[in-house]
Simulated scan of single mutants.
Amino acid sequence: MADAPGWQGLLDDGEQILWQGRPSSRIDWLDGDWRSALMGLVMVAFALFWMFQAAKSGTGMWVFGMLFLVIGLRTALSENVLPAYIRSRSWYTLTNRRAIVATDMPVRGRRLASFPITAATPVVLEPGDPGSIFFGPLALSERKGEGFLLIPEADKVMRIIRKIQSGEETKDAP
């Protein structure tokens, strides 16, 4: 991220990058909301049926099915595909002072979320391969909040964060 065009000048004086990475962009079919996906697929099937039958009648009413088609597709894909797409457009950076989550989305553009890492910052590790690290007050809630999602070396990054929080030297970061 620091070397990518348009992201220069984001670090404060004395701030050093300790780790950078990208999340896994795989689609997580097991962790999504299957009820929403199923409801969306039913809506898509109904919309396609409506549009086909209305087109056969020649009345032009098939256009109304487009609304249900779009809503159904969004409902079906938003819990599994959309998060994977957002992760594919995300970059993570850990410095000796903060965690940075950068995204570059079409239409929305570039966004930067920054989370100070202090001894008082709530940080939660969700182990796994890949694992996730969540920051801030929402990290302690069920909602989880923001963080480094689905990174392959989450345990190593968590150790670096703990060193930052304890005030230890962090020059030996991977």
Rank of each mutant, 00 (worst) to 15 (best):
L77S: 13
S78V: 09
E79V: 13
N80W: 06
N80A: 14
V81K: 02
V81E: 05
V81H: 13
L82I: 15
L82Q: 12
L82S: 15
P83Y: 07
A84S: 12
A84V: 04
A84Q: 13
A84L: 10
A84F: 14
Y85P: 11
Y85R: 06
I86S: 01
I86Y: 10
I86V: 11
R87N: 09
R87E: 13
R87Y: 08
S88W: 09
R89L: 14
R89M: 14
R89T: 11
S90W: 03
S90K: 11
S90T: 14
S90P: 10
W91E: 02
W91I: 05
W91M: 14
Y92H: 08
Y92F: 06
Y92R: 03
T93F: 09
T93Q: 15
T93G: 02
L94H: 00
T95F: 03
T95R: 07
T95W: 04
T95G: 06
T95K: 03
N96K: 09
N96S: 09
R97H: 13
R97K: 11
A99I: 04
I100M: 09
I100H: 00
I100E: 01
I100W: 00
V101G: 00
V101P: 01
V101S: 02
A102S: 12
T103N: 08
T103P: 08
T103D: 04
T103H: 07
T103Y: 03
D104F: 06
D104Q: 11
D104G: 02
D104N: 14
D104H: 13
M105S: 03
V107E: 12
V107D: 10
G109W: 06
G109A: 05
G109Y: 14
R111V: 15
L112V: 11
A113K: 14
A113G: 13
S114C: 12
F115Q: 10
F115E: 07
F115T: 01
F115N: 00
P116V: 12
P116L: 04
I117C: 01
I117Q: 00
T118M: 15
T118S: 06
T118N: 09
A119G: 06
A119Q: 08
A120P: 09
A120F: 13
A120E: 10
A120D: 11
T121L: 05
T121F: 02
T121M: 03
P122V: 05
V123S: 15
V124M: 07
V124A: 03
V124I: 09
V124T: 09
L125M: 09
L125V: 11
E126I: 12
P127Q: 14
P127V: 06
G128Q: 12
G128A: 08
D129H: 15
D129Q: 12
D129F: 08
D129E: 15
D129C: 12
P130V: 03
P130T: 13
P130Q: 03
P130M: 13
G131P: 04
G131I: 05
G131R: 07
G131D: 03
S132D: 02
I133C: 01
I133K: 00
I133L: 04
F134P: 02
F135H: 01
